[in-house]
Design a protein around this nucleic acid. Sequence first.
DNA 1: TATATATTTGAACAGGTGTTCAAATATATA
DNA 2: TATATATTTGAACACCTGTTCAAATATATA
Lengths: 211, 211
Amino acid sequence: MTIITIKKSITAQRILDSAEALFAESGYDGVSLRHITQHAGVELALPNYHFGTKLELFKRVIERRSEILNKERMGALTSLENSASIDSIIIAFTEPVLKRTVSGDIGWQNYSRLVAQTANSPRWSREVMSHEFDPVALEFVRRTKMCFPSAKDEEIFWGFHFLLGAMTITFAQTGRIDILSKELCKTTDLVGIHKRMVPFLSAGFAAICAS
Amino acid sequence: MTIITIKKSITAQRILDSAEALFAESGYDGVSLRHITQHAGVELALPNYHFGTKLELFKRVIERRSEILNKERMGALTSLENSASIDSIIIAFTEPVLKRTVSGDIGWQNYSRLVAQTANSPRWSREVMSHEFDPVALEFVRRTKMCFPSAKDEEIFWGFHFLLGAMTITFAQTGRIDILSKELCKTTDLVGIHKRMVPFLSAGFAAICAS
DNA sequence: TATATATTTGAACAGGTGTTCAAATATATA
DNA sequence: TATATATTTGAACACCTGTTCAAATATATA
């Protein structure tokens, strides 16, 4: 019983890992099932056997790690004190993805890059991203409201929108800012970025949410 | 002479317009030349005649409007007074794209969405986006440095990075925030967004750049 | 009107696409 | 060991892909 589970997950996970890496690099339409199976070293028909269609495989790639991420984010947000600062709320939201991407795990790095470009695609942002990430996003908004009791909901949602943009472009790790800054800034220095991102976003929230 | 120029640009522009709309919806690999030519109502071989390969067509789509945008942005930035506030610098950078996207011109709306998803794609962000937009980005950084003379260059580049993320997700107009906020926020309400985005980002810059 | 140039047409090319399926093999259960 | 189930194989399916090109047509120049 355990053996077949392990055996099955070996092939299935190899496919998921390869799909994740290649989708992150070239997007859904830029990758074929033949690219994926060749990269994973398995037969062409196996993705269909384990996951169904290419679209179902793509969705499974996204949700595999979002389950882990959301569980931890939700836990961090709900265990905050009622008087939690906006800084700590932002950190509770960003820390789970930050620490995994920083850890050097290539799988999480690919996943972050994949989510980043998926979030800004009209084709996927509503169908896939909303479905995966909206519950925890609403919890973020709820906690932020407790920070700024006099702020209108509208302002907090827009604040979250800007936060999401900054986060997205950061974890996309495109390396563009490296070139622009003549290597003064490093896309891979996520800890250094986080140290600036939290105060930047906190001040932004305060500016539009304080009465 | 004028007649052939007009005649040529009619077909060429129809191809560019269709390519722009379809690339914005589904990305470079999600669109075929047959989709584009069918949408434009022209023969399959014509994109090759007017622009060369599919890749060259894509680059031409991006640069067609970036030329206009950059000229205006550069003008707005360089004509600022030396004592210009961070608010006015941000506005100088964002206004040219804002006003065109808001105007209702479907071409500019498609272009904004296309640029948004191109910016977060590893495949395009360095090769295409850097080439098109870095000169004006450096001018933005130069002006911002005059606002915060004691700030390190690094901080200003990171501020620009966060600004770019917020701008990108905004002009992507994916509609995700509409669903999340139960239609309290409208992706299409760019003027309302801009009213929040400028103070949000200004406060963010001040937070990390003030000594 | 005759000539040169610009543009459009329609078809073809070699190769890649997601998906399917019966047959073969491996693994688990009894 | 014999039987049932899970997985893998290798080939085939109909269709879509970017690119090319000689021939036809339209337009500009003299």
